[in-house]
Design a protein around this nucleic acid. Sequence first.
RNA 1: GCUACUGUGGCUUAAUGGUAAAGCACUUCACUCGUAAUGAAGGGAUUGUGAGUUCGAUUCUCACCAGUAGCUCCA
Length: 585
Amino acid sequence: MEENNIYTFDNPEFRETYRHTVSHMLAQAMKRLHPEVKLAIGPAIENGFYYDFDADFPITPEVLEEVEKEMRKIAKEKLKLERFELPRDQAIAYVKEQNEPYKVELIEGLPEDAVISFYKQGEFADLCAGPHLDSTGRVKGNALKLTSATGAYWRGDSSKKMLQRVYGTAFQKKEELDAYLERIEEAKKRDHRRLGKELGLFTFMEEGPGFPFFLPKGMVLKNKLIEYWREAHTKAGYVEINTPIMLNKELWLRSGHWDHYKDNMYTTTIDEKEFALKPMNCPGGMLVYKSMPHSYRDLPLRMGELGLVHRHELSGALHGLMRVRCFTQDDAHIFMMPEQIKDEIKGVVELIDQVYSLFGFQYHIELSTMPEDHMGSDEDWAFATDSLRTALEELGRDFVINEGDGAFYGPKLDFHLEDSIGRTWQCGTIQLDMQMPERFDLEYVGSDGERHRPVMIHRVAFGSIERFIGILTEHYAGAFPTWMAPVQVKVLPITDRTAEYADEIAGKLAALGIRVETDHRSEKVGYKIREAQMEKIPFMVVLGDKEAEAGQVAVRNRAGQDLGAMDFSVFETMILEEIETRRSK
RNA sequence: GCUACUGUGGCUUAAUGGUAAAGCACUUCACUCGUAAUGAAGGGAUUGUGAGUUCGAUUCUCACCAGUAGCUCCA
């Protein structure tokens, strides 16, 4: 409009500057009310900002409220933000004088010749590279909110002191803040933990923290996903195996897990020998490969396994189905000759894309490179990493690089899906592994009659079936497509006179393999519809005297549309077509 | 694991230093009804577990267990 629109939240840089300034106001307000609190850092983040404090009292919701009030006051004071610079040693002296040890540490981490900038607003000045708004008066006091206070390690290092992090968000208009808070509330309604309970999909018990219990309806989801998985993988030329969930220590020593992953493994002693529950499926797969000789003609050998793995995750990391201590990986190990790597990787990327597309998911790919704790030579890592990168480039796929985040045995491509409140979860992964075949001394006989070492890809598409179900639940807000819906049709007789006819229709549907329930309670049809609706059942079949007489069915879908009375055969064709094509809308 | 918080019938919530209230769900009865809640009656909790303070605790304190938010870590 009259002003240049670079000063609106449509401009990400301005949004960041604005929220960064608000985070300084947060620090200023905190210092005014609690001068003894030490300041750490306070950046703008995705949906707001935070500031880390070292306070010797808990920052409770009451404290947040007071601080928030003070922040509004600071906005009203319209304090000018002024930048000033100091040479490094003077800067250190300055923050020492202010008694801010974390700031001292920050500056000491900067180069000798650095010029250090500060921003001053009223009585408060903070170390900062900027940029900032020119005045706290630009900040809309009633459109800012401190949302929570939690712990966070200094410099993200769990061996360092835990500070208290205050999260907040800020907008230019109160309506924008309200809309944002509303969105968060809406997202909570589709939280898979809540829906999982409401819809009777799965549950957790105190007796098994982090170990999900699947209820009959959740089991349908799991089985339908597996059914689809088998179908897609058979078509893509995979075979399937199954290996034990518990194997002896020697195997885990050999695979390297005992040295690199033991902290996360459940171990036990049987007949004075140590065993471990598998945290990954690969070693079992290696043994299967080794159990028979292989020719180059058999390669690539794509060996799938729905493997149940156990990992002792930290208690604080558990999160519904998204982060559990035992889960089913839709794993596969592909053994091949080095020249087959690129094409195989492309094939897997396309298979994963096909799976995610079925559900209409948005996702992004990350390429994770060599971590500090790793096995194998730098050359092997470079070759493997390059194969992954080239495959993606040839497919024209975008990806981001995640430096040093690979598995200890190889680099990987990770596929990340978004949940209902915008958090991303790693699901699919493709890991190139040049160590495991070496460790297990895997071989194939080449066209030259000589023995050669195969290369291996380790990959998952769903990632964890449990996590995938969690994400699907949020994605569909519990209204699963008909092909996987735990109950596909609910038959609702209007009066007892049509009870028998309802049973007949339900019987016909069941005979077609359709998951059907009948509501025989003596309630009004409106009530029965309401319940079926809340259970998010795709189709309701309402049966009254009219339908019974005409031998028809009156169909209603969960979108609230009354599709009217139709012959059973018409409904049958419609629903079967929807199921067979796995239509998601 | 760390920091903070939470824990009341199946679910959602209320209340109090003097042994718990409501709605939904459930059971029964009546009603036999046309596309998002018919009415009535009834059963069901020793307030996560253990210990302490107290004449008395579900309420206060401590420990443990589980969960929530985030950090660290990860599919």
